[in-house]
Write a protein that binds this DNA or RNA. Sequence first.
DNA 1: CGCCAGGGCCATA
DNA 2: TATGGCCATGGC
Length: 214
Amino acid sequence: MNELQKIYQTLLTRYGDLDWWPTVTGSPYEIIVGAVLTQNTAWHNVEKAISNFKNNLTPQIVSSMNMTELAEIIRPAGFFNQKAVYLKEITKWYAGYNFDAAAVRRDSPEELRAGLLKVKGVGKETADSILLYAFGFPTFVTDAYTVRLCERYPINVEKNYDMIKACFEEALPKSEKVYNNYHALIVINGKNHCRKKPVCNGCPLFSGCKRKNI
DNA sequence: CGCCAGGGCCATA
DNA sequence: TATGGCCATGGC
């Protein structure tokens, strides 16, 4: 078992199967919206924004909303003026597939990723989150927590998004299930144990951690 | 009161 | 290509 597999097992033993992404409607579109709304934003605020849609969280209805109307609904998620534009853009992208998740899944993940990255408001992390969590492609999601983890453990010399993503995908079986859980576990571990704590005693990855993050 | 959250865009050098 | 300012609410 390599180092990244060991870390996965350790986190899995500690936290169990997290099975992201939590949704209300269970639709891929809700996950897409959540992926945009959660950008640099606490998940609790995203939940408030999503509940504000009530029964209107469909791409058809969002398409018909005007910008100020949409911004007002997502206000609790912060950056609402920017994100209203972003949601309009990603919804336009989805319209290219007739709002049909099956049609998206028929396309190749490489082409989808390239297409997503052209959408204003969708960077690498959001694109990969959408591919993995909304459509089930086995693509690893790297985020700030993952970068910090790689700084702790001397796994990657390079610490940019693409290098870390490739490193994890290389070290692990190409499994949607594993990628889903691993990213979730890294985030939860980062949140629960070493944030704002001078000494981290509860972190299963590094007891007696004195770093501020992870 | 300050810090930061499941980032990304844009201007600048 | 690599920083830095900016976006904004809500929990602690």
